[in-house]
Structures are given as structure tokens and as C-alpha cells.
């Protein structure tokens, strides 16, 4: 059933994208790559963890490490709680969470409207972004969950700043 759906989507050259908001920017993640969206949840902070780790939240009997997209983008963490998207870490066969300010509608996007990252993007954005969709009201940056994996972020070295 699901396979059929995907097949149809691919035929039409469109994908369904879940839109997210961080600060003033709009982002999108392929819905097939999202395991679950948790409502307003405040992660428990982990002292001494890298700054981009928002903390941990309980999820289905496990402890979910959550990455703050705000911090990754160089913004200050918000005092109010955000939403957490649960994503698969395909390498470790585990899950992790991404903390965003808000989750918006699911949009069906034409893959033809996807443009690659511009060359002159700063290294942080280059690392995180996976192209962008040109839309009527601006850009929606596509994110690739595999690029947000905590282990990858740590390995990249660009974001590895310890909390002071």
C-alpha cells in the first residue's frame, strides 16, 4: 500500500514535505523520513553536552537525544517550548529528535522546483541544507535527516562547541 503511494508520488515527480518553522525561516523534511512529530515537549537538558544538543526526551520507553535546529543555525535557544520531530538514524539504527519552533502543514512539492545549495553558502548551512524549494512567498529549505544525526554533527566538527 505504502509502496504504491510512493510509486505514485515518484511518478508525478512530487514529494510530500512537512513544513517547519525555525525563527523566520521555513524548512521542510520529506514526510517519509519522519517517524513521528511530538507535540510541545521540553527536552531535559544534558549538562556538558555539545551546545546543539537540546537535551533528551522520553520516547517509547527509550531516551531520545534531541538536536536543536535553532542552535545549529546559530540562533539563541528559545525559552518557550518547541516541537520535536522524531527521525531515524539509519547508521546506528536508532532514532533522534530535532527541536524546531513549530510544525506547519504538509505540502506536496514538485521536485522540479528544487534548487541545489548555492555555492557561496556558509559552511554551516552547506552542511545542513539539502537544496531549497522556490515558492510563491520565498524559499523553503529542504533538510536531510541523515545530515542532522547527532553523531554526524559531532564528527563534522563545525558545530562541536561545548556548553560553557
Amino acid at each position: 500500500m505504502k509502496d504504491a503511494q510512493i510509486a505514485v508520488a515518484e511518478e508525478k515527480n512530487t514529494i510530500s514535505i512537512c513544513s517547519l518553522r525555525v525563527g523566520d525561516a521555513l524548512f521542510g523534511i520529506d514526510t517519509r523520513q519522519i517517524r513521528e512529530a511530538l507535540g510541545k515537549t521540553t527536552p531535559q537538558q544534558v549538562p556538558l553536552a555539545p551546545k546543539y544538543i537540546a537535551g533528551v526526551v522520553p520516547y517509547r520507553g527509550d531516551v531520545l537525544t534531541t538536536v536543536s535546529l535553532r542552535v545549529l543555525l546559530g540562533l539563541e535557544p528559545l525559552a518557550e517550548t518547541g516541537c520535536i520531530l522524531v527521525l531515524d538514524d539509519k547508521e546506528d539504527n536508532q532514532h533522534f529528535g530535532v527541536l524546531v519552533d513549530g510544525v506547519g502543514k504538509v505540502l506536496t512539492m514538485d521536485l522540479n522546483a528544487l534548487e541545489e545549495n548555492p555555492r557561496r553558502l556558509d559552511p554551516r548551512s552547506m552542511e545542513l541544507f539539502d537544496g531549497a524549494f522556490r515558492m510563491d512567498f520565498g524559499l523553503m529549505v529542504r533538510l536531510n535527516p541523515q545530515r542532522l544525526r547527532p553523531s554526524r554533527l559531532a564528527a563534522s566538527g563545525i558545530f562541536a562547541t561545548r556548553k560553557q
Binding site: A49, V56, T65, F96
Partner: peptide, 19 residues
């Protein structure tokens, strides 16, 4: 006791988490 993800285990001060 719930295990932490490897990158948090690396901190070395926490052995796990619990609800």
C-alpha cells in the same frame, strides 16, 4: 535505566537516563 545515545555517553559523566 535507559541507555543514552553514544554521543551523549561520550560526555562520560552520565551512565544513562531514567523517567
Amino acid at each position: 535505566v535507559k541507555p543514552l545515545s553514544p554521543d551523549l555517553r561520550e560526555i562520560g559523566v552520565f551512565s544513562g537516563a531514567t523517567v
